[in-house]
Design a protein around this nucleic acid. Structure first.
Lengths: 335, 335
DNA sequence: CGCAGAAATGCAAGGGCTTGCATGCCGAGA
DNA sequence: TCTCGGCATGCAAGCCCTTGCATTTCTGCG
């Protein structure tokens, strides 16, 4: 920097000002500095900058996992938005590390803030996160504290839409929900709305009608075993808590020669690529996955500038995408 | 830090030494410092540290995209390995940014090194990368320079294996290769070995037998259109340049009621999750995707410690995984 | 032509840490 | 008892910037 200053015939202060508030330096001087910088290939030292300003353009993102359609899409949305706003992402996932290697390491010192998503409620991890003292935004989970910014997905709207859609051709007593892990935030919300919507249609779902497992194809196949036995003269309706599960159910049904959608009407959740890859294509509730990541980042960055606004709650809409597995709307013959 | 020093009754120099070379401080003193640190919740300031040492435990990873099975798996492998070695990953993708926002931004100042993968040969980007002056490792691409560390996948072994496997039940003149983008490194390598292996079997493939397109399901479907017309009394063999393409081909075949594997024998590439999801399950060449990421990170970190060793070339093996689409080995009836 | 106020720039003090060198202490060998 | 090497520790410089304050230069107006 000193060299640049010298080359431009100014002091380092002016160079610094040129970099940080160009309007505070005379145009003519600015040009000289500009040129000197270019010619010398000068790059300010981020460490020194950070040391002075206590700021950085790096934000951390902590996810349960990096892998899989959902997280990678989330990450993509987050990365794109961060980049757009001049920030960069430092990633960390729960799995593979002990819960939070990132948090206990010094890198958190680089971060201006942290976007967090953890699937399982994990008090210890959560304590660590809070202890970091970093500005936080929480993605799609139950945690709830004063002044905490959160970004959620409106599970209710999509679930309700899906259930009602199914109810158009399936009796309430023939409806099933195949969930992910019991206790998981999304599964819990979706199950609740499922039950509530069925109840609204005049039927109280039995425990049989709401099942919990995992977010996997395997669980879908397994759950399908029980379900397929219920298929009789009347078609059954199944809402899966994600597309993976739905895919497992579809495969199992096809292997058992149970026609989908004629005898089993299926709706998934998330609208991952898998949904349009399978045949028939999966009706599913679209999650604004990339938006979720993007929003989280946006809120976080906004919070860095405006700490006093903390406590925001953003809810992103979901909506049903009707495709082949829930019955061609034109062919539906009522219940 | 000063507070810690005071609390422990030592100088800041001792605290620093305790942190960086614990063996240079008396055990008894160490304990006091340790306690003081814990009680005060002291965390060294990374900026100040970086300013002094010119080091950081952050490495950048630049990928063509974050999305999709392949990249997210690569990223996962890289992140896990980085974490294991006490490093953290700063991500950036070509798509969504202008080519290299990351490179032109100051964050590169945080990074100790950079792992790079770019699909399309892109001279301008590559210049920028080199200009960063960062230690580099190149993942799976053609770029080739003196003293550059590279991590590659041994396309040849897997391709050869796959082609020979298909040749066991398909005549060389009935073999087809459906590639990704012409010019893409992997596609080029695989196509070359495909041609070579067929040639070795005594037949020179026509241009018809080697086609280029994209790494997408859609391209697979489209390519299948032409292919399916070739299916006659004898089965044809198809090697797709990735599983996506293979999936498209399989779907198109099924829709056209061309039995797979009886009349079309199909092998994909990458062994993504998609491969075992489809029915019949896809025979495919397994890529050590996560390993690729992990290795890149390992080499890079090794290089930080041992710059003089630069110029390494690591080749990770691929191998054929035989599943349903290439004919049940037990059922194969020769050509 | 002189002066006040604004604009442009320079000066220098840190920001929190690491590390070469100096100091003080100890035990061991003479 | 004296000297000397080695260990543990302290001192203070310096890493490269930013920024409040001081200084200089310029502008416009009386």
């Amino acid at each position: 920097m000193e060299d640049v200053a010298q080359a431009a015939g100014v002091s380092t202060a002016t160079v610094s000002r040129f970099l940080n508030s160009p309007n505070r330096v005379a145009k003519e001087t600015a040009d000289r500095v500009q040129r000197a910088i270019r010619e010398l290939g000068y790059r300010p030292n981020v460490f020194a900058q950070g040391l002075m300003t206590r700021k950085s353009h790096v934000i951390g993102i902590l996810l349960p996992d990096i892998h899989g359609e959902f997280y990678s899409e989330l990450l993509r949305g987050a990365a794109a938005e961060a980049r757009r706003l001049g920030y960069h992402l430092l990633i960390s996932s729960e799995s593979g590390d002990g819960p939070a290697t990132m948090l206990s390491s010094n890198v958190i010192g680089f971060m201006a803030g942290l976007a967090v998503m953890v699937t399982e409620p994990n008090e210890e991890l959560w304590q660590q996160i809070k202890a970091s003292g970093l500005p936080l935004v929480v993605i799609d989970e139950a945690i709830h504290a004063n002044g905490l910014d959160r970004v959620l997905v409106d599970n209710a709207s999509g679930t309700r839409e899906a259930v009602n859609h199914l109810l158009a051709s399936v009796r309430p007593e023939d409806m099933y929900f195949v969930g992910g892990p019991k206790g998981n935030f999304d599964t819990t919300e979706r199950a609740a709305v499922f039950v509530q919507t069925i109840a609204h249609a005049g039927w109280t779902p039995s425990d049989e009608q709401v099942r919990y497992g995992e977010y996997t194809v395997e669980w879908g196949r397994k759950a399908a075993g029980a379900l397929l036995q219920r298929v009789a003269s009347r078609p059954i309706g199944v809402l899966a808590a994600n597309d993976e599960i739905a895919f497992g159910i579809l495969q199992a049904a096809q292997e058992a020669h149970v026609d989908v959608p004629a005898r089993l009407r299926l709706v998934g959740f998330d609208d991952t690529r898998l949904a349009s890859l399978m045949r028939p294509q999966l009706s599913t509730v679209r999650m604004p996955t990339a938006d979720l990541g993007a929003h989280a980042v946006r809120v976080l960055i906004d919070r860095l500038a405006q700490p006093q606004r903390a406590g925001t709650l953003t809810t992103l809409p979901t909506r049903l995408v009707v495709r082949g597995t829930s019955g061609d709307p034109g062919t539906e013959s009522g219940s």
